[in-house]
Design a protein around this nucleic acid. Structure first.
Length: 596
RNA sequence: GCCCCCGUAGCUCAGCUGGAUAGAGCUUCGGACUUCUAAUCCGGUGGUCGCAGGUUCGAGUCCUGCCGGGGGCGCCA
């Protein structure tokens, strides 16, 4: 009936194969028992509304919601609840506060034990969920075109989701739906032939694809004879002419080399095995149309085969069509998108399909999804989600362009990022040799760029700011990397290994307690990202954790702790923090360098 | 004209799906490096959450209307 609530205990959340419960899970379970005991079994199922609190570690807000239903005052409900609440092992004495909140402060010993359990857990508290097959469609650059900052977002967000879902136990199938088909290919093939396959100009496809594309375009527009040949090429390509096909493959090979260069620089997990370009669905398109027509879902309108869906009207109230076959007999991307759904459901056996695709395509995708449902290609049990990527805007509020009118090149953005990191590093760590600095600068520069895109919610548009994207201080990737590097440095200095720091945890001072509590939130956040498809929540969590660590680091001496037991405890806390930071950054696709 | 998204501090963005006194980073001002890495930390300044109604114990969050910005709306993808 209701969608699962993120803060519900595991028993009511998505299927999970075990794992450490988070503190709020534990409290929710205890409150469920208390609710049942106090007010009858039918109340054991209501959400106890456990939330983080500014007045305690957590607060339970159930009493306020239940007061009306029970016909009692909220504070009285809370008091009765407390009479049946058994949390003595977990919390200090719960307190009713304000209009009827129950404030809960965790016992430091309990938190300490949980931290130790988390540190000993391979998965650091992240649950293993019941495996689902999840194709994730992301990146999708175009052959013979430069990737721009828009592609960066879908690539980076999609990759983080793929890594996170995989880590939660799901079978992720990466799908890079590259634009490798369409009328421009006649022009591109002719141009490739004209400049020579092994020429410098052809190499532009790997280094500066837009230059190649624009040269081809100039030919096309400047020479009617070239344009004619290009049009004939399109026909040959579609007819499967072997020579044309070979040239087309060559073009794709060069572009793939370009994509891989970018993916490698970005440390994105996409490989050639994940390529599932538009062209791979060509053979299915005719069948898609025939089936839609046979089922009476598609009808011919103005010469084109269209699907009209209820509730979709455009200008002047005219129905909006999803055109599956153009009036000239050709197919558009709607047909291809329908074919991808059928493939992902029938061949890949998808349970959930993610489309990490730009927000402007929302209407189109909704129509495709609805059509697929009507055609029976998308059974009710299969969930399909458009993870909308908001536009990147320029300072004028319009979709980003540089002064010249050309989109900002992704490769130059990445180079600038590494250069800036390099400059800071040369200044701060002159004692490191150049090769080491170069490696670190890459991790830091790329980490900054990726974190900038991951830390804002994926569906909101944002204004592109070069300096914001490349910033190395504040709420940035490098801040998290720096915290991890300081921990590693500390262990190096002490001649110790984080793996050996498994001592008893004691949380005496406030910064220690805050850090311990922060560590326990990891599993819940990762699971939430897996459910909501919002990597920025993991970013926010890791930033909070790194802040908690840095405060601890400034105020609590570790190696120089006066007391041996305190030292052991702080080492264990530091090691656990490092493990979580590293794992969390890993799920985001960001590398934490050994030192920086 | 219809539909979707957005409007929170000077700037860029969060806000855990309705909880108490709305947060962070950047900027700015003032402090902290002979002490585990100052890419850091501590403190201050800064908000009528676009506007107006509504729902209820309680609204930045949900509903309606208006204002402002972005996007989509038949043969490009």
């Amino acid at each position: 009936m209701h969608a699962p609530h993120p803060s519900m205990p595991p028993s009511r959340g998505p299927p999970s194969l075990g794992g450490m419960p988070t503190p709020s899970d534990v409290l929710a379970e205890r409150f469920a028992s208390a609710l049942g005991a106090a007010f009858g079994e039918e109340y054991a199922g209501v959400d106890p509304v456990i939330r983080p609190s500014q007045f305690a570690d957590f607060q339970a807000n159930a009493a306020l919601a239940l007061a009306k239903r029970l016909g009692a005052k909220p504070r009285e409900v809370a008091e009765r609840l407390l009479e049946h609440l058994d949390v003595a092992d977990v919390c200090l004495e719960p307190e009713v506060s304000g209009p009827g909140f129950v404030n809960l402060t965790l016992r430091p010993e309990w938190v300490a034990d949980q931290v130790r359990a988390l540190a000993a857990d391979e998965r650091l508290g992240v649950p293993v969920e019941e495996p689902r097959v999840v194709p994730v469609d992301y990146s999708a650059p175009n052959v013979a075109k430069e990737m721009h900052v828009g592609h960066l977002r879908t690539t980076v967000v999609g990759d983080a989701l793929a890594r996170t879902l995989e880590h939660l136990g799901h079978h992720v199938v990466r799908q890079n739906h590259i634009g490798d088909w369409g009328t421009p290919f006649g022009m591109l093939i002719e141009h490739l032939l004209a400049v020579g396959e092994d020429s410098e100009e052809a190499r532009l496809l790997v280094e500066r694809p837009n230059d190649f594309y624009q040269a081809a375009r100039a030919q096309f527009e400047g020479s009617p004879e070239f344009a004619d040949r290009a049009r004939q090429r399109v026909v040959d390509l579609q007819a499967g002419d072997p020579d044309t096909r070979r040239l087309w493959q060559e073009l794709i090979g060069l572009s793939t080399a370009y994509f891989n260069r970018i993916y490698s620089a970005l440390d994105v997990t996409l490989t050639d095995d994940d390529l599932a370009g538009e062209s791979s669905y060509n053979d299915a398109l005719e069948g898609i149309c025939e089936e839609l027509e046979a089922k009476g879902i598609a009808t011919v309108s103005e010469g084109a085969l269209c699907v009209f869906l209820d509730g979709h009207t455009g200008r002047e109230g005219r129905p909006v069509p999803l055109i599956v076959r153009k009036s000239d007999g050709g197919y558009g991307y709607a047909t291809t998108d329908l074919a991808t759904i059928r493939h992902r459901v029938e061949d890949l056996h998808a349970d959930t399909i993610l489309y990490v695709v730009g927000a402007p395509q929302h209407l189109h995708l909704q129509m495709v999804f609805e059509t697929a449902r009507k055609a029976g290609w998308l059974p009710p049990g299969v969930e399909v989600v458009h993870v909308q990527i908001g536009n990147v805007l320029g300072t004028d509020g319009k979709i980003l362009r540089t002064r010249s009118g050309a989109p900002i090149r992704l490769s130059s953005l990445l180079e600038e990022a590494v250069d800036r990191a390099s400059a800071v590093l040369a200044d701060a760590r002159p004692e490191l040799d150049e090769a080491a600095r170069a490696r670190i600068a890459e991790d830091v520069g790329i980490g900054a760029v990726k974190y900038a895109d991951l830390s804002v919610s994926h569906d909101s548009e944002y204004t592109f700011d070069f300096d914001r994207m490349l910033a190395l201080t504040g709420n940035t990737g490098p801040y998290l990397q720096y915290a991890a590097a300081r921990i590693r440095s500390m262990f190096r200095k002490g001649g110790l290994s984080p793996a050996d720091a498994t001592g008893q945890v004691r949380l005496g001072e406030e910064p220690e307690r805050a850090l311990g509590l922060a560590l326990l939130g990891f599993g819940g956040v990762v699971a939430q990202v897996g459910r909501s498809y919002e990597p920025h929540r993991l970013c926010a969590y890791l930033f909070d954790l790194a802040q908690a660590f840095t405060t601890f680091y400034e105020q609590c001496p570790v190696l120089r702790a006066e007391d041996e037991a305190v030292r052991e405890s702080r080492l264990a806390l530091s090691a656990a923090t490092l493990a979580v930071l590293q794992r969390g950054l890993g799920l985001l696709g960001i590398t934490a360098p050994e030192q920086m």
